Simulated assay, not measured.
Amino acid sequence: MHEHPLQRFFRSLRERPVFAWERYRQRDVLVIDHPLCQAVFSRQGAQLLHFQPRGQKPWLWCAAKWPQVGAIRGGVPVCWPWYGRHPSENAWPSHGWARLIDWKLLDSRSDEDGVHLHWQLQLCDWQVDLHADLGERMELRLSTEHQDSLPCQLSQALHAYWRIGDVGEVALSGLEGAQGYDQLNRAVCQQEGELRVEGGCQRVFQHEGELQLKDHAWQRELCIDTGDSADTVVWHPGARPLLGVSWDEISEFVCVEAASGGTDSLCLAPGERAHLSLQARVGA
């Protein structure tokens, strides 16, 4: 079992401020040390890379190696303003521009419930805001405002990599009966019983409410809620290699994501907003 690469910031016994900027792997990272939790954000992409409530194991996985430039694999990348491949521009990056660009941190504060952050990105005729509330629970809220005079298309995702003990010992419940699309087999599917992902999985479900990520190796259950207006995407590469990620690391995560517009892009009128959220808590 690998240590989370960003736990290095919390090894010292000296007292840290709640918020402190550090330089790591040629990126600016915001290290958060609160009585209820520890976390790390990257300014690039406003990406939550590490989250760990006190006394618990990490909730999020992050690759040990990062490219010198480009997207960081792990945590919760903000895939925006398109999710997956761009529908018409093959040379444009997968999952959009947002995870490649530095965001502005407009607000960071702490209280007895945890920490609260507000990140913002202005890009062309778009404004996108990410609000994060972290403590004993985790909540991310993404809001997009279209400021152009013509309608536009949008797809987006909060692409969460959840840290687990072993992919062979996890199961997802709460999706029973959900309709979806299996992108590996290119076929409509309906989930029967618990979902196991060890052999590879890339499914998009129309699903509302919580699902439970049961991690038998770590004897932990995370309750994950992708909101009431999004698709729930479950992904794991199985035996397929991932660039820059070791085989051992691949067994230590599973992706359960909130996404919208992936199958039918959202059409936003001028001034219209689109919202996406992702919440998680420890099960009973």
Results as ranks from 00 to 15, higher is better:
residue 11 R to K: 10
residue 178 A to T: 09
residue 23 R to W: 07
residue 160 A to V: 04
residue 116 H to V: 08
residue 131 H to E: 15
residue 181 Y to F: 13
residue 224 I to W: 04
residue 234 V to I: 12
residue 59 W to C: 11
residue 265 S to F: 01
residue 222 L to N: 06
residue 65 K to G: 10
residue 252 E to W: 02
residue 226 T to H: 01
residue 255 C to F: 08
residue 190 Q to C: 15
residue 123 L to Q: 05
residue 87 P to G: 01
residue 170 V to F: 00
residue 101 I to F: 03
residue 27 R to A: 04
residue 48 L to A: 05
residue 266 L to F: 10
residue 207 H to N: 00
residue 154 L to K: 09
residue 62 C to T: 13
residue 86 H to W: 12
residue 74 G to C: 09
residue 278 L to R: 07
residue 18 V to E: 13
residue 102 D to A: 13
residue 78 V to W: 06
residue 107 D to S: 14
residue 59 W to P: 06
residue 98 A to H: 04
residue 6 L to F: 13
residue 35 P to Y: 02
residue 264 D to F: 03
residue 265 S to A: 10
residue 32 I to N: 01
residue 158 L to M: 01
residue 225 D to K: 00
residue 28 D to Y: 04
residue 197 V to Q: 00
residue 81 P to G: 10
residue 244 G to Y: 03
residue 276 L to T: 06
residue 174 G to P: 05
residue 63 A to N: 00
residue 239 A to K: 12
residue 91 A to R: 08
residue 183 Q to S: 13
residue 61 W to H: 08
residue 171 A to G: 05
residue 112 E to P: 07
residue 89 E to Y: 13
residue 122 Q to N: 10
residue 104 K to L: 12
residue 109 R to I: 05
residue 76 V to M: 02
residue 284 A to Y: 05
residue 175 L to Q: 08
residue 275 H to F: 10
residue 261 G to I: 09
residue 246 S to I: 05
residue 54 R to A: 12
residue 120 Q to M: 11
